[in-house]
Design a protein around this nucleic acid. Structure first.
Length: 615
RNA sequence: GGCUGCGUAGCUCAACUGGAUAGAGCACUUGACUACGAAUCAAGAGGUUUCAGGUUCGAAUCCUGACGCGGUCACCA
């Protein structure tokens, strides 16, 4: 069976040729699904055809509609409204599709492409626990990886963990000085939070030190010397903070010394570093597991930050890069409307971008992937433009398959999250809250009262996580989004639980039906509008998945699932299944429920959302 | 300031990439459970798509300008 959109498009082209004698092979046919208020499933827009056919849009619609109806059994009828030709598909097409194709295992998924893609997401620092920003990153990255998997790619998920640098040294120093040997175990604090507390403690102590110093004579001299008219004293000290850290601060000096010792491989320092990072990973693993994401490989900056120098050499040989007199290496990207960018310092040490060059190659060597997706917030758009341009000029074999999955930051109603103002929303707390929310909501219902405590807890977990995940994933990646943690996460309306509820209904009716004989379904021919709507929606699932994958946009899948669930609810309300009046109708509707349920489970599964059998 | 992204109902988001009367949910008003599950359904109200021009059969979408809000402009990561 030819896919309907292709069938219609070629039909239109043939029609144009037959009716008007014009060659429409190069003509784009504007085809869309028919809006709800009109009859039909597909709509051809005839405005663009006026130039070819040299007739009015209405007349083209009329003539084309007749041609299509007469020549294609699939097209049963048509109607024309202004420049829109609405086509009514024969019910036999829908029933055949439902009974023969929609139920196939893996329906909607594309066949194997034999192409590998690496998807990076999460990639946190190790000095603090994960927060709401990471949550969006992780959900988006994971869903995209599953989406690409459904589109036939061989997907590997990775992250690069920033486990080195001054930040973790601050935590280490604070723990060493003020921790008195406390451990996550001895305090009962989740290990990554434990480490984060020492990072915060460092900042607190540092601020105390800084404020005390501001009263000193030295400080006053500096202030008098450098103050600017437009800055108040308070603002001046705020802007001077980094300089203070690097020049006067005792704590700052100690932290920097610790970093140097780490870089020198000092045994004690490295041991402490390992210990504290170990705690962090233990905590992260718990969070990842709760979120339902896995990684095929972890990269650590401590092991990769020196990479990329050989690629700089290769670039110099190729003449893509150039060396300045002081020995630093640059690339000139001004002809690509980008800037000049440093790749190596004068002292030969590497930079962030150098490391990214190296890890790109490393991933290629590790996986042989021809595509790589980087899930990183849009504040790094420029960085990735530069990175990708450089890799292209180096003629790396994967250079054409690079994609920056850029996403907008998550804002609170009060604006951007700021750790200094203590407005950061913790990932673990957030999950606790939504599950608590689902628990409260479940108290109002009796539907699972016969289940064991453990089963009910599991359902509540699934419902809460679905609410959280769906709320975040349903927003298009590029869009900055507002998330209000104080406002309870919705469980009704356009939400994850709403979709789950539709799924649960499809299962409930099957439980009730027992194990029925469905062979009578073939005898059902006259579809209800709500059934036709559901089936044509199922029909579009494979295309939807391909589109979403091509655009790296899981929100399209979320919206699709919502729409499908919505129609299932309407169907549920409009028609009777077990008391349908005929064996054929009951059997057919059970099949329909089954297929809708499967697709909902498949689509939501791609988003990392689990479906409960009951709720 | 240069570059860049965004601005849609009170709020959170859509709009199939230029197509029909700009759609959903939340909140608000109203109706539907002795029915296969009411975490549901149905109905109402809510809009000068920031503003001003332009392109064309047709603009939330493309172009120009203004206003507003982000991001980014290191031999930092």
């Amino acid at each position: 069976m030819t896919a309907l959109p292709e069938l219609i498009e070629t039909g239109v082209r043939n029609g144009l040729e037959t009716l008007y004698g014009v060659d429409a092979s190069g003509q784009d046919i504007t085809l869309q699904s028919t809006r709800k208020e009109f009859e039909g499933e597909y709509t051809v827009v005839t405005f663009p055809l006026t130039r070819l056919a040299r007739k009015k849009p209405e007349q083209i619609g009329e003539e084309l509609g007749q041609y299509l109806r007469d020549n294609f059994a699939e097209i049963k009828d048509y109607n024309v409204i202004k420049g829109f030709l609405n086509l009514v598909i024969d019910d036999a097409v829908w029933t055949r599709f439902l009974l023969e194709q929609a139920g196939e295992p893996g329906f909607g998924r594309s066949p194997d492409r034999g192409e590998r893609v690496v998807v990076e997401f999460a990639s946190p620092n190790t000095n603090k626990p994960l927060h709401l920003g990471h949550v969006r990153n992780i959900l988006l990255g994971w869903a995209t990886s599953q989406l690409l998997d459904a589109a036939g790619f061989d997907v590997k998920t990775v992250q690069i963990i920033n486990d080195r640098g001054i930040a973790i040294c601050k935590s280490m120093l604070a723990w060493e000085r003020f921790g008195k040997g406390a451990t996550p175990k001895s305090t009962g604090v989740k290990p990554d939070h434990f480490v984060g507390e020492y990072y915060v403690l460092f900042e607190t102590r540092f601020q105390e030190e800084y404020r005390a110093w501001q009263q000193s004579e030295d400080a006053q001299v500096i202030y008098e010397d450098r103050k600017k008219k437009e800055l108040s004293e308070k603002e001046f000290w705020k802007s001077y903070k980094n300089t203070y850290f690097n020049t006067h601060s005792e704590l700052g000096a100690a932290a920097k010394e610790m970093l140097l010792k780490w870089e020198d491989g000092d045994v004690e320092t490295v041991a402490l570093w390992n210990r504290m990072n170990g705690w962090v990973y233990e905590g992260f693993d718990e969070t990842y597991e709760r979120m339902g994401v896995r990684f095929d490989k972890l990269y650590y900056e401590s092991q990769t930050y020196l990479l990329g120098k050989d690629m700089v050499d290769a670039g110099l040989d190729k003449g893509v890069f150039y060396r300045k007199e002081d020995g630093s290496v640059f690339v000139d990207l001004t002809d690509a409307k980008l800037d000049q960018k440093a790749l190596l310092r004068a002292d030969g040490t590497s930079l962030y971008i150098t490391q990214d060059l190296g890890t790109a190659r490393l991933r290629y060597d590790d996986f042989g992937a021809t595509r790589m997706v980087y899930t990183v917030a849009d504040e790094q758009n420029y960085h990735f433009q530069v990175l990708f341009e450089i890799l292209k000029r180096l003629e790396e074999p994967y250079a054409d398959g690079l994609y920056h999955l850029s996403y907008g930051m998550v804002d609170l109603p009060s604006g951007r999250m700021k750790s200094r103002e203590g407005t950061v929303v913790d990932a673990d707390d957030l999950m606790d809250e939504v599950i608590q929310e689902a628990y409260q909501s479940s108290l109002e219902r009796e539907s699972t009262s016969d289940l064991s405590e453990e089963e009910r807890r599991e359902i509540i977990r699934k419902v809460g996580m679905a609410a959280l995940k769906f709320q975040i994933i349903k927003v298009g990646p590029q869009k900055r989004m507002v998330f209000d943690p104080k406002e309870s996460v919705d469980l009704q309306g356009q939400t994850g639980p709403y979709v789950q509820n539709a799924f649960v209904r499809t299962r409930a009716v099957w439980r009730k039906a027992g194990s029925p004989d469905l062979s009578a379904a073939a005898g059902y021919t006259a579809l209800e509008p709500t059934e036709r709507e559901l089936i044509s929606q199922l029909y579009s699932y494979p295309t939807l998945l391909r589109d979403a994958a091509e655009n790296y946009d899981p929100s399209l899948v979320a919206m699709y699932c919502y729409e499908l669930a919505k129609n299932l609810h309407k169907f549920w309300h409009d028609v009777s299944i077990l008391n349908a009046g005929s064996e054929a109708a009951t059997a057919f509707r059970l099949r329909l429920c089954q297929s809708v349920g499967n697709v909902l489970e498949s689509g939501m599964g791609i988003l990392g959302i689990e479906m409960p059998e009951r709720m």
